[in-house]
């Protein structure tokens, strides 16, 4: 998670009148929050192409609606909420149009799929890599069968360093509900993966 002071300065620079400062702040915001937003969208949409679309939509929404961000909540809380909404929208659009799913194997082997912050890329044992990929896909398939309310909580909980209070703030639900949904989601996952 970003430090609150860094966040405040980032928001101030994003709202700056100076175009160059604003452009640099946009890049910084994407570098800091792009990957967590993608992880969140991936768990909600359960499809990498949809997750990428949802991330782009979320950042477009964020930059367009930035003037209406009053700073009552943390910037990251607001970003995750916008991302969750974008992911939900992309997912329902895809379901409505019933387009074919993306070939996962092809995507994960694609040379252009650069690893943001993944220093271990290229040094990993291929068999271990395959094992991890299979495990990840199994988990994602199990997540896709969860009810949306549980999936959203699980997706936020999977982000590193996001406290439960923040999840409750993103979703606008009490902390107890976050806990109960998280437990229910983990229980369902355990059953699915048996």
């Amino acid at each position: 998670m970003i430090d609150p002071q860094v966040e405040a300065s980032l928001v101030a620079r994003l709202k700056s009148d100076d175009g160059r400062v604003r452009a640099a702040a946009k890049t910084e915001a994407f570098n800091r929050l792009g990957e967590p937003v993608f992880q969140l969208c991936l768990r909600v949409t359960c499809d990498p192409a949809d997750a990428e679309d949802a991330r782009q939509e979320a950042f477009v929404d964020i930059l367009r609606a930035l003037s209406s961000f009053r700073g009552e909540a943390r910037f990251s809380t607001w970003v995750f909420r916008v991302a969750l909404r974008a992911a939900t929208r992309v997912r329902s659009r895809r379901r409505r149009h019933d387009e074919s799913r993306v070939d996962w194997t092809e995507l994960t082997n694609e040379p252009g799929s650069s690893a943001v912050g993944d220093e271990s890329r290229g040094q990993e044992d291929p068999s271990r890599e395959l094992e991890r990929r299979e495990g990840a896909l199994r988990l994602l398939a199990a997540i896709s069968r969860l009810p949306f309310a549980q999936r959203a909580v699980l997706a936020l909980a999977a982000l590193e360093d996001v406290p439960r209070a923040e999840i409750a703030a993103v979703l606008g639900i009490p902390l107890g509900t976050v806990d109960s949904r998280l437990n229910a989601a983990r229980e369902s996952l355990r059953r699915e993966l048996e």
Binding site: F38, A51, A136, L139, A158
Partner: peptide
């Protein structure tokens, strides 16, 4: 593993 896969798929 899923986080790792997400990092690999996340484009810069």
């Amino acid at each position: 593993d899923l986080r790792w896969l997400g990092r690999r798929l996340s484009r810069a």
